[in-house]
Computed example of a mutant assay.
Amino acid sequence: MTPLPMIQLPPVKHLYVHVPFCPSICPYCDFHVLTRRSGQVEAYLAQLEREAAYLAASYPTDLETVYLGGGTPSFLRDDELTRLTQSIRRHLGWGRLENTLEVNPGTVSAPRAQHWRELGFDRASVGVQSLDDPTLKFLGRQHDAEQASSAVELLAAAGFRVSGDLITAVAGQPLERDIAGLLALGVGHVSAYTLTIEPGTPFARRGVKVNEDDEQMGFERTAELLTDAGLERYEISNYARPGEQSRHNSAYWQNRFYLGLGPGAAGHYPTQQAGLRAERRTNPHLHDWLAHDFTAGPAAESEAVDAEEHVTDALFMGLRTRAGVDLAALSLYSGLEVTQRYAGPLERNLEAGLLTLDGAVLRATVRGWWLLNKVLGDFVNG
């Protein structure tokens, strides 16, 4: 089956903005982050406006969500964040449904929270990570448990929908107390990630290891405690009360188009090139991004996404979610008969109890989520 050709580019409804500056660099972090130096933020804001103008001229937008990640977007000074949001609004618009600011607990005060709300942010993703001071110290966090709790309370009082980030599988971490503390603060959303030691990070250079038993215990116990408390596990690492799901992150998991703005930002773009379903780009890091001339085009070369890559992308992202992947709809859009192309991996993983097929909807089981990298590797290898 072959879909109708695209007459014009569809409006892109999601925008990710990368703010690379942090007050300090955590030893487990492998994102593009750096501490601010004289003149860097000014140069960043000027270039961000130029890239926003390029994106506006290249893609129609009807934004539903905007997400400022990093780095530490809340580390920007009030006038800097005001200028950044004005640039976005001027060229690309603003999210109609949800606008998220990633927040470090040590940057929050009541006046700042109110300022962020006035700028148009309505959701805060707070890097709590733990409510145990020894665990926070081990993780290299600059805030303590009291600051984390206060930050959540101040943001909620200012009218934010608040999500709390939690890191699990840290040796000695009082996980149950961490989760109970987050729930007591009234967060509507929790993102729980296993501590991962990435190559090149300070933790990797120090030889820090994650115990596999701690990893599995954290994975299973987090799910048990949060779902018992009434939060739905709607994605492998994300839990929400009704109506509190991240609309922006859900766009990633549904393989929708989104713009990437800023150094290191990734984007998934519509295309009119024959035989392709999308283009991917990941911007270079700050130095090269600042040196780029956006009047000459994007800062990174496009990576073409053909029908087969579109299908594997959709499977990789969609199988992370409780909703799963509608294989019939995916076949119709891609023009590739998914159940035929991936008959072997489907049969093997269904028989192993790692996937289920309900009509045309393919989902990972709980055990399949735990072994998801193995499942996805099977699809890559055919």
Rank of each mutant, 00 (worst) to 15 (best):
G264N: 07
V162F: 05
L290M: 08
L182R: 06
L371E: 07
G377F: 13
H285P: 02
G260S: 01
I167M: 15
L76K: 04
T339Y: 02
T201I: 13
L15N: 03
A229D: 01
Q8K: 14
E153V: 10
A184L: 05
R90V: 06
A180H: 12
S58D: 00
G120P: 13
L9M: 11
P298K: 05
A53T: 12
L9R: 13
E102D: 03
L319R: 03
S149T: 14
F160E: 02
H189G: 04
R117L: 11
S125H: 09
A56P: 05
V128M: 08
L101N: 03
F160C: 03
V338I: 09
K209T: 14
Q40R: 10
R348W: 10
Q273T: 13
A265V: 07
M1V: 15
L354R: 15
E351D: 12
F316I: 10
S250K: 06
T194R: 11
G95N: 05
E176D: 14
Q47V: 03
T61Q: 04
P174G: 08
A46S: 13
L346D: 04
P27M: 09
D79T: 14
S130Q: 06
D30Q: 06
G297L: 08
A329I: 03
R206Q: 15
L315T: 05
S331A: 14
T135E: 01
A53L: 12
R83Q: 15
L346H: 11
W369S: 11
W116H: 05
E51G: 07
F160R: 00
H268A: 02
L183W: 06
L376F: 15
G188Q: 07
Y44Q: 00
L92C: 01
E303K: 11
A43S: 15
W289C: 07
A314L: 01
L315R: 01
D165A: 09
H14N: 13
A156C: 00
A113P: 07
G262C: 04
L350M: 10
T65C: 01
H287Y: 11
Y333F: 11
N381I: 15
S302V: 14
S334K: 00
D62C: 11
R363M: 08
A43R: 15
D165R: 09
G368E: 07
P10Q: 06
E301P: 03
H143T: 02
